[in-house]
Design a protein around this nucleic acid. Structure first.
Lengths: 136, 136
DNA sequence: CAGCATCCAGGGAGATACTG
DNA sequence: CAGTATCTCCCTGGATGCTG
């Protein structure tokens, strides 16, 4: 498995696997080999989704759609109310889910996916299914 | 790989969004609506990838392939050596990357993607590109 | 019912120094 | 060069009580 590689990397290493997520911005082609341009950022939506329970919350909303707060608490019992609330806020801030409030008594709130959220779900599905498959 | 999941056998009365990652295990059909069965787990590979810089490290390895420790440090300057080391260990434990050590002087170590890692990269690409696009 | 404010504990991540 | 070892620190996340 050890493949011989010559130390031909003088300074500018431009040899890279093609079509990898680590590509530069969609507009350009420079990778970090060309500069200090970053790859998959640790910020933004990825960061949000990486937080604890974020993915579960997102999936639960998508599965229940619409989902009420209590439903989500039942679905993800390990997450505390505050955590759940935080994740919902963050997902809403990313415009992946939408919050619908009904001023009734008792109060009712429903969370549902936005179009963006649905799109994300589509791109997420093959990934999650693959990950699931290899867990076992 | 087209996936048809129209095989919903009208299992339960509760209808849910179609084809969402929040499905039960691939083997079964029960969703959390049916029980407390969990959806996207917060454990395993997902947890590993969710850690800080994990995705960057993974992408950087895939982009450089093979990647040396120093290269990765340069590529992801925000991550400390210990963090980088941790992420590499974890990714290796998940068998997404492979570590190749050459007992030379000076010592040399190369990280490269495994086949599994490459598969993950493929499934990750559309997601990352989409995320990138909407960040702006 | 929904969810925020507060407080607190744990662990992950950063910085640095040191070794094979 | 390629990491470990250690220490601290901050942030995340858990628990609870209270409000609209």
């Amino acid at each position: 498995m050890a493949q011989e590689r010559d130390d031909r990397k003088a300074s500018t290493e431009s040899d890279q696997a093609e079509g990898f997520p680590a590509r530069g911005p969609a507009t350009g082609d420079s990778v970090f080999g060309d500069g200090e341009d970053c790859l998959c950022p640790a910020t933004g939506t990825i960061e949000t989704l990486g937080r604890k329970y974020a993915l579960q919350v997102f999936c639960a909303v998508g599965a229940l759609d619409p989902a009420r707060f209590g439903d989500l608490e039942s679905a993800i019992p390990d997450a505390s109310t505050s955590t759940l609330s935080d994740r919902l806020d963050e997902l809403e801030a990313e415009e992946l889910i939408a919050r619908e409030q009904y001023d009734e008594i008792p109060p009712r709130v429903e969370y549902e996916l936005t179009d963006e959220g649905r799109e994300l779900g589509e791109r997420l599905t093959p990934l999650v299914e693959w990950l699931r498959g290899r867990e076992e």
